[in-house]
Every structure is written in structure tokens, then in C-alpha cells.
């Protein structure tokens, strides 16, 4: 900012590679904190728990966190625009119960897809339009939507868990492995990879960042801020819906309460991964690390035979400390 012109303009045109490398370093620093605690957790568990460092156990970790990864992926888009979706828990129950209802009239694969489509439509019509178009508060709208959908699911199911054990397709989907890898994990990884590509390499993905960074500037630059917001809430709803049916298939039962608390767990995973609550800053890679950390922690607590409630205590502390570190760093960088 205070150096002479020549040095800087001379430094700049070294080509895209240098800039990209710098970007990568900068982006990495955002989730360095979670990476450090993840590595620490893995090292500690590897040393103390003999069963921890096995392929089987890692498949187990992956499998138990498929639902969380799907929801957190959608949530990352929303957080990047500066919002949050607190309806994902209700949406999961809604999707699972819609699927169960449709199993009476449709073949299982169609019922599953229809449930995801219903979630997408519900997200579009409630969160998407009310927040994106009507400009209502995302906190109010998503809490309302989540409660509303949870209620609908309770009414349709009588508030009961419903078994889907007789539907071979869903049971297979939830339990079968291909080449040792659970199908549900494959689905989640494929969705995640697609999301990474969308966020990094499409105009839409960059618009998500632009809207989160400064919505007014994005609007004046000709970006449809409303359209981007509608899109991210719709996307998040569809992924929550997918998570709802995938989770039901894993448990071979559908419950209106399947997603309770998921909005906070997924939000924690995204924030742990360095995505800013204010929007505009963050990445899906960070979200993946956040999900892995929560998963490894839960797994370690189970293996160690400690009360499972301790994992919540630890993840809460790590979350606040991670955000605190980020705050200190960005505070220093401010002029």
C-alpha cells in the first residue's frame, strides 16, 4: 500500500501460477486450525486405541457421517452467502416421511427421488422465495420452515418411526458395499465432489462468494442477488432431503425426528472448516475437514468407552477456539 509503483506492477504480471499459489496458501490458512486438531485427534487415537487405525474403522467413520456431509455441503453454500439454514433438520424428517408415504404408491427408487424433489420444492417455495425474493430474515424463515416441515412429518407419520425393512432397494442402498466402500459413502462423496466443482469453477459458485462478500456491490454489478439466494436455499433443501432418505435407508426406518439437531451439527462443521459466518469467505474443503473432525471425535469417544456426551463438550470448545483464532488473525490483518 505504501510501496512505489514500479516494484508492484512489475511483481504482478508474473503469471497466474504465482497468484494461484498465494491463493492456495491463503485459503489453506482458513482451515489450518481444524486441520491441526483433526491431525491431533487422529494421532492421539492411533496411539491409544488399537482398533482406530484400521480400514474397517475408517469405513465406519465415513458411513456414520454420510448424512452430516450431505447436509453440511448444502449448508456451506448458504453460509457463504451470509445466511444460515436452520430448517435442514425438519427437512430431513419431512423427506424421510414423504418417501415412506410414497412407497405405498411408487417403486422405491422413484419414491426416493420424489422425496428429494419434494424437499427441493419445499425449500424453493419457503426459504428460497421468502428469503431470496421477499427479503425476509433467514433466521426467522428457516426456523419457521423447519418447525413447519417437522410438524407435517409428525402428522403424516403419527409421530412414529416407520420401518422400511421390506423395501429391498432401500435396505440395499443403506447397507451394501461395492469394493468394500458403502454405497452411501459413494453417493455423499460424489455429491460433495460435484459441489466443489460447482463452487470453484462455475460462475454461479463465484456469485455465491460475491453475494456473501458484499450483496449491494454484487447487485450493482448486475448479479441477481435474489436469484443466488433462492438457489442456495433450494440447493441446501435438496441436499437435506437427500440426507433424509439416505439416513432412513441406513437405519431402515423413517422418523419425523431423524434430523433433530442436525442444523447445529452441520453449522458447526461448516464453521469449524473456516467458513465465515458473515459470508463471502470459506470453502467446501474446510467443511469436509470439519465433518471429519466431528466424525473422528465421535468415533474416538465411542472406542475409548467414554460417555458419548464428551464429544459434544470437546467439539463445542474446539469450535469456539477455532473461531477465536480466526478472529484474532483477521483482527490483526485489519488496518
Amino acid at each position: 500500500m505504501t510501496l512505489p509503483d514500479e516494484r508492484l506492477t512489475a511483481a504482478a504480471p508474473r503469471g497466474a501460477a504465482a497468484g494461484r499459489a498465494r491463493d492456495a496458501v491463503q485459503a489453506t490458512s482458513q482451515y489450518l486450525g481444524v486441520l491441526a486438531v483433526l491431525v491431533l485427534a487422529i494421532v492421539v487415537l492411533s496411539v491409544t486405541q488399537p482398533q482406530f487405525l484400521t480400514v474397517d474403522n475408517f469405513m465406519n467413520i465415513a458411513e456414520t457421517n454420510v448424512v452430516l456431509l450431505l447436509v453440511a455441503t448444502g449448508m456451506t453454500f448458504v453460509l457463504l452467502t451470509g445466511g444460515i439454514d436452520l430448517s435442514v433438520g425438519g427437512m430431513m424428517g419431512f423427506s424421510a416421511i414423504v418417501c415412506w408415504k410414497l412407497l405405498d404408491v411408487l417403486p422405491a427408487p422413484a419414491a426416493l427421488l420424489a422425496a428429494v424433489a419434494a424437499s427441493l420444492a419445499a425449500g424453493l417455495l419457503t426459504n428460497g422465495l421468502l428469503i431470496g425474493r421477499a427479503g425476509m430474515s433467514f433466521l426467522v424463515v428457516t426456523i419457521g420452515t423447519g418447525t413447519f416441515l417437522h410438524g407435517l412429518a409428525q402428522i403424516w407419520s403419527g409421530g412414529q418411526s416407520q420401518t422400511i425393512f421390506k423395501h429391498a432397494f432401500l435396505v440395499k442402498l443403506g447397507a451394501q458395499r461395492a469394493g468394500g466402500v458403502p454405497i452411501t459413502v459413494m453417493i455423499a462423496v460424489a455429491v460433495f465432489a460435484l459441489a466443489v466443482l460447482v463452487l470453484r469453477y462455475t460462475g454461479f459458485g463465484r456469485m455465491v462468494y460475491a453475494v456473501g462478500g458484499n450483496p449491494e456491490a454484487a447487485r450493482l454489478a448486475g448479479i441477481s442477488v435474489a436469484g443466488v439466494r433462492v438457489a442456495v436455499y433450494t440447493l441446501c433443501a435438496a441436499l437435506a432431503g437427500l440426507a433424509g432418505v439416505v439416513g432412513a435407508a441406513r437405519l431402515t426406518s423413517t422418523s419425523p425426528d431423524a434430523g433433530i439437531g442436525m442444523e447445529l451439527t452441520a453449522g458447526a462443521a461448516v464453521l469449524l472448516g473456516g467458513t465465515s459466518f458473515m459470508g463471502g469467505r470459506g470453502s467446501l474443503l474446510g467443511t469436509l475437514l470439519g465433518v471429519l473432525f466431528l466424525g473422528v471425535l465421535q468415533n474416538g469417544v465411542t472406542l475409548a468407552g467414554v460417555s458419548p456426551f464428551w464429544s459434544n463438550v470437546v467439539s463445542g470448545v474446539v469450535l469456539v477456539v477455532a473461531i477465536g483464532i480466526d478472529r484474532l488473525r483477521s483482527g490483526k490483518a485489519m488496518p
Binding site: T202, R206, Y209, A210, N214, A221, I223, G280
Partner: peptide
């Protein structure tokens, strides 16, 4: 800074904003 630029974002990203098309690939 209120109406034109996103302060957290790089010069490169800020300049790219008006050229973004939702369904097109970005060209870094």
C-alpha cells in the same frame, strides 16, 4: 466499499464479478 467492492475479496475476484455467468465455467 459499501456499494462496489467486497473488502475481503481479492482484486482479481472483485474485477471478475460483472463477468460471471451462472452456468458458465470460470476462467481463472
Amino acid at each position: 466499499f459499501g456499494q462496489a467492492l467486497a473488502g475481503d475479496h481479492s482484486i482479481r475476484d472483485n474485477l471478475a464479478v460483472p463477468w460471471l455467468r451462472a452456468l458458465r465455467r470460470t476462467d481463472r
